[in-house]
Design a binder for these strands. Sequence first.
RNA 1: GCCGGUGUAGCUCAGCCCGGUAGAGCGGCGGGCUGUUAACCCGUAGGUCGUGGGUUCAAAUCCCACCACCGGCGCCA
Length: 444
Amino acid sequence: MIKVTKLDLSPLKTFGKTHYIAEITEKLEGEKVTLTGWVYRKREHGKLVFIILRDGTGTIQVTIHKDKVDERSFKDARKVSLESAVKLTGIVKRDPRAPGGVEIQATSFEIVSLAEPWPITKDAGKVFLLDMRHLHIRSFKVRTILYLRSEICRYMREFLHKKGFVEIHAPIIITAACEGGATLFPLKYFGRKAYLTQSAQLYEEAAITSLEKVYTIAPGFRSEKSRTRRHLTEFWMVECEIAFATHEDIMKLQEELVTYVCEKIVEEHEKELKEILNREFKPPTIPFERITYTEALDLLREKAGIELPWGEDFGAEAERELSKMFDQPFFVTHFPTVIRSFYHQPDPENPEVTLSSDLMAPEGYGELSSGGVRISDYDLLVKRIKEQNLPLESYSWYLDLRKYGIPPHAGFGIGIERLTAWICGLEHVRDTTLFPRTPSRVYP
RNA sequence: GCCGGUGUAGCUCAGCCCGGUAGAGCGGCGGGCUGUUAACCCGUAGGUCGUGGGUUCAAAUCCCACCACCGGCGCCA
């Protein structure tokens, strides 16, 4: 039997129910309870019908004997189809034959909403399940992932508020690229060109001059035909930006944040992780190892036989191999200036590299976050924008910030789907989303 | 955008090489069963074989084109 953990079930009970399934224990033996939910399994045995009832908190076996309920209840129980919404009343009974040792012996049973034959069967393939995503999200596996994603976000907010961060909401509709290179989704905006944002970062850089430490949990959009298990066209990030911060400051913050989230997940949800997602997960310990980009190239050459010229970004294989060399998250720092976005601050000691870092997950999961120090100097920023052939006029307000007292500042963005996929041990980031968006899928 | 693969019943697939009346399992529907654990037993319905063209007496099968999707690469969170 499945039971969720750490969910406060007391505050809201509706529709006449007396309990949620997770609350039904041996201690309630003999008590009369009313439950609502969905038919998860059904087995008919003539005068006896077994129903495994599911609600948002778990499952429990219900027995409906012909002789112990009224005629209409028994008729409903025989007729009811999988995933129909139902309401029932019965007595809690201990019975070793029941899964979990406790069952409900129904005294009445009522169909609230009769379902058509359920299209999802044990043979369903992954494409079909995505087509049926609106129905498949009822499964315990999907439910658990979506729930843990919610918890991951809650823990991130919890942590950031403890650290004095202010949550802001940056615009989703924008007029210019946040970074060069990546393609934006265009849209019509009353006769003008506008786009969907790919990052809140530039707006956060404005916000820190008011609120000092800000973060946002928001979607980003990339119109790239990426066909990988790490990309979606619509994805969510937690992005932090801090005034008067150094590169080391944001790396420390990231390792504390990620560790906090992982510890809380294991502390409060290890059972679901193990039993439903089959995931053995150990929270990382601080500090995370830091290696420079140049050291990473050496490691790849020595340990994986992958030879990359200095100044070239890691490919998928290199990133995966590097990721497998560690057993907990680690930072790769000081990426070459030529492969980083225009806003990254070059290292004053060696302008060939930037004060930037990617946080990498172990086990082949690869990049979780990307961050660094932003350029505060007006002239340098103009130079970098020109070097990357970006339209200067698009960035005029962003450049303007550099004229009006912007301090040294730094920030980072963590991919929520990637973090969730790593913690839950999933193969594909799309499995962490309610309705994934990929180049080939905008429906359902 | 590039490389590889797949497309046949509601679902998962076989049949294709070697052309000759379209198959299985699961699910559905009808019936039976008072202890099942994604029960079991009996019966039954269900198909423009991705689309278009070609070869042939005959095409799911051979040829050509196109489309859709999957896996990987590139791009990145």
